[in-house]
Simulated assay, not measured.
Amino acid sequence: MKKFIKNSVILFGIVMLLVVSLVLITHFVTRQFFDYTIDQNKNILVVGNSHLEYAIDDDIIPQAFNIAQSGSGYFYSYLKVREIANRNKQIDTVVLGYSYEDFSEYRVNWFAGEDKIKFKMRDHFFLFTSNDYWELLKSNPRSVITNTPQVIVHSLKVLYKGYPYLGGHVHSDRSKLEESLKRYDPNYYINTTAKPPKYQDTYLLKIYDYCNRNNIKLILLNSPIHPKMDEDLQTNKELYCDFASQNMPEATLINYSNYFQDETYFSDISHLNDNGAQIFSTHLKQVGFYSGTAECLK
């Protein structure tokens, strides 16, 4: 029995050593050989979650490179800004999704939630430093440890597929507005704590600091949402405005949340369909990212 236990411990140790070695090797290989290059004519990096993923068509705005992705908290946007801008020196502007919804309390789970760790860590792992991994590990040790082995395969997939694995504009022809209005509960999105969600504020400020240190203009963009949602989330607006003005005074805050009053431009209550994205992107192309309304309640 003792021999069996001893052999089992040795075997477990060998397996763990092999897994750790493969994680480190694939991380190193992907990080070193991933093609970070973007077109030299693209000086605007667009990052954020599904709001900008659906709203900004970078085929219409040739100087923009959209790498926003659904379900991405500011932690993953920070990794993208830090690693991609550092390797593409023509980037002088970062457009970051910044919405009333980003101050919803449930956004805490976009960093530490098990589902987010499972599906986000694996594709972005090659962008991690040891400190990034440690911070995520502290937030949810069990989930990070159990999901780490999957990065071995996914890192190689990302290396092969490139940027499409990390985000990009989505042409949406779906029509789920009626369904989403029926399921919509404004209380889910309203912040009742009068403070930003944990982790979101930390990595939002890291993005701001990185841009300031590297002379990159940061634009905080609130993209169009359905009029019903825009009305309900005015509750979050004061926090949204105050956090930007008090903590990111050098950033440009642009609010387009009420840009469309006609609901035919939405695929659901918070995302534009392809027609809406084309109109909105054409507007941004014409006026530039520096124009728009930035009024805030005090």
Rank of each mutant, 00 (worst) to 15 (best):
M1K: 11
N7E: 12
I10M: 10
I14Q: 06
M16K: 00
M16Y: 00
M16N: 05
L18Y: 12
V20I: 15
L24R: 15
F28M: 13
R31F: 01
F33C: 01
F34L: 09
Y36N: 01
T37N: 13
Q40H: 11
N41C: 00
N43P: 02
V46E: 11
V47C: 07
G48P: 05
L52K: 04
I56K: 06
D57A: 06
D57V: 05
D57M: 05
I60E: 00
I60M: 03
I61C: 10
I67Q: 03
I67F: 00
S70R: 10
G71W: 12
G73L: 04
G73H: 01
F75A: 09
Y76A: 06
K80H: 05
V81C: 06
E83M: 07
A85L: 05
N86G: 15
N86V: 07
R87V: 03
N88M: 11
N88D: 11
T93H: 10
Y98T: 01
Y98S: 02
F103L: 06
F103G: 07
Y106A: 09
V108Y: 14
V108M: 08
F111Q: 06
A112V: 07
K116N: 15
I117Q: 12
R122A: 14
D123W: 04
D123K: 12
F128L: 11
D132V: 04
K138R: 14
S139Y: 03
S139L: 01
P141E: 03
P141Y: 03
R142H: 11
T148W: 00
Q150G: 00
I152E: 03
V153M: 13
H154R: 14
S155Q: 15
L156R: 04
K157I: 09
V158L: 09
K161A: 11
G162W: 08
Y163N: 08
Y163H: 10
Y163V: 08
Y163W: 12
Y165G: 04
D173A: 02
R174A: 15
S175F: 08
E178S: 15
L181D: 01
P186C: 00
Y188I: 12
Y188E: 15
Y188V: 13
N191D: 09
N191Q: 09
T192A: 06
A194I: 04
K195C: 02
K195V: 09
K198I: 08
D201V: 04
D209W: 02
C211R: 09
N215M: 05
I219D: 08
L220H: 04
L221G: 05
S223D: 05
I225P: 02
H226S: 07
E231Y: 13
L233H: 11
L239S: 04
T252Y: 11
L253G: 02
N255I: 05
N258T: 05
Y259D: 02
Y259E: 01
Y259L: 05
S267K: 13
S267M: 14
I269G: 00
N273T: 02
N273W: 03
D274F: 06
D274K: 14
N275H: 10
G276T: 00
I279A: 06
I279K: 15
L284D: 03
Q286F: 00
V287I: 07
V287N: 13
G288R: 08
G292W: 10
G292N: 13
